[in-house]
Design a protein around this nucleic acid. Structure first.
Lengths: 208, 208
DNA sequence: CAAGTTGGTGAGCGCTTGCTTAGTGTGTTG
DNA sequence: CAACACACTAAGCAAGCGCTCACCAACTTG
């Protein structure tokens, strides 16, 4: 349940000690890709931002596209794992949806740079890599659909079309990374609670 | 109230007859910028897609950046005009919010290419141009806030913080352009009605 | 009809790009 | 200590980029 607060961090599991060269390159690319976009980012800038010589990127990654793929793949896999682990502790459909929307929203605020790359830069991936990330993305939508349908089956939600609710859940959470700024009016946790409330109201959950 | 259905069309006011060269360039750039992104699009491709020689773009636009600016500026100005004209026929706050959300959502589906460029490519504008489009964008948010506050003042909406509702309105509508496809499950008009319902439910409007 | 304006073409310039390759210093191993 | 593996650097290369410029054909105008 613990989440990294440093958005530029790119490790799978944070380990103590100074970051490796590969990790420094991933962090540099996260900042540059999210700020200027994949195409506008130069491989020289990635390497020098990571504190190395202009060609150092190619020691650790075979191409700029592959570096992007690692970033997008990790981001999507983390999102899927988060969604699945968020609902796990609960059985009540309302609690499960609340946890899902809350954690998914928080992630898109805290890790808004990584989320931007995953959402807006994946078109620059090769067809094979794009296919890979599309599959993970689909699993996230399926998980959301499962939770909505679960509440529908148990009679706690009152809506005609679960697809509409899933659309709203994804839009409210994902769109955070488009406009979010750490200097803004809401913290990630506040946004998580806000979106969870909005979704339960949309679902006509009792008491909302 | 009539809207163009051809998303690649870029005229301010559609006039009969064959499109001008400038318009063909704007249409070509709309397709290319939205599909591949501003940086990945070559000026040669814009010109040849418009059916002209590789350097023809420079007859009508001083630079690639200026062409992008024309696209983003028009898109934002159309959105602002649409929002203002959508609410005008109504006095009931519920009707006004419904019309605003509906038309704004429909626009982001029908013109999803132009909307994508306005949302995702504006970072490649010069600081001055970026400032210009940011001002128009702010006016749209102000208009939305005005309508929400109006309903709050008249006691028909029941929410503690109007900023949250504005955030939701913008996210639900704008995010359409991220995932919308003409081959998808919902028509633009259906999405307009769906989002209008969701927002009125979020606002606790009576009967929703 | 001479002169200018408009909208377009084709060649190409100066620069930057992703990526390669040869080489270097350092640590490790038999 | 020879041999090797590894992480990294310096110096490019071929290709492609935004943009310019000389030129041209078709209208418009005095």
């Amino acid at each position: 349940m613990t989440e990294l607060h440093d958005d530029a961090s790119a490790t799978e599991m944070p380990i103590p000690g100074p970051p490796t060269s590969e990790e420094r390159l991933l962090r540099a690319a996260t900042t540059l890709f999210s700020d200027k976009g994949f195409e506008a980012t130069r491989t020289r800038d990635i390497s020098t931002t990571a504190g190395m010589s202009p060609s150092a990127m190619y020691v650790h990654f075979p191409s700029k596209e592959d570096l992007l793929f690692q970033l997008v793949r990790r981001s999507n896999e983390r999102a899927l794992a988060l969604v699945l682990s968020a609902v796990a502790p609960f059985t009540d459909p309302i609690d499960r949806v609340r946890a899902l929307v809350r954690e998914f929203s928080i992630m898109h605020a805290r890790n808004f740079r990584r989320a931007r790359i995953a959402q807006y830069e994946s078109r620059h991936l090769s067809p094979e890599h794009h296919q890979t990330v599309a599959e993970t993305r689909l699993q996230i939508r399926v998980a959301a659909m499962r939770e909505v349908q679960n509440g529908l089956d148990q009679g706690v939600f009152l809506i005609p079309d679960p697809r509409v609710a899933v659309l709203a859940i994804m839009s409210l959470a994902v769109d955070i990374c488009r406009w979010y700024s750490p200097d803004g009016e809401f913290t990630p946790e506040e946004l998580g609670d806000i979106n969870a409330d909005l979704v339960l109201r949309i679902l006509h959950a009792p008491g909302y």
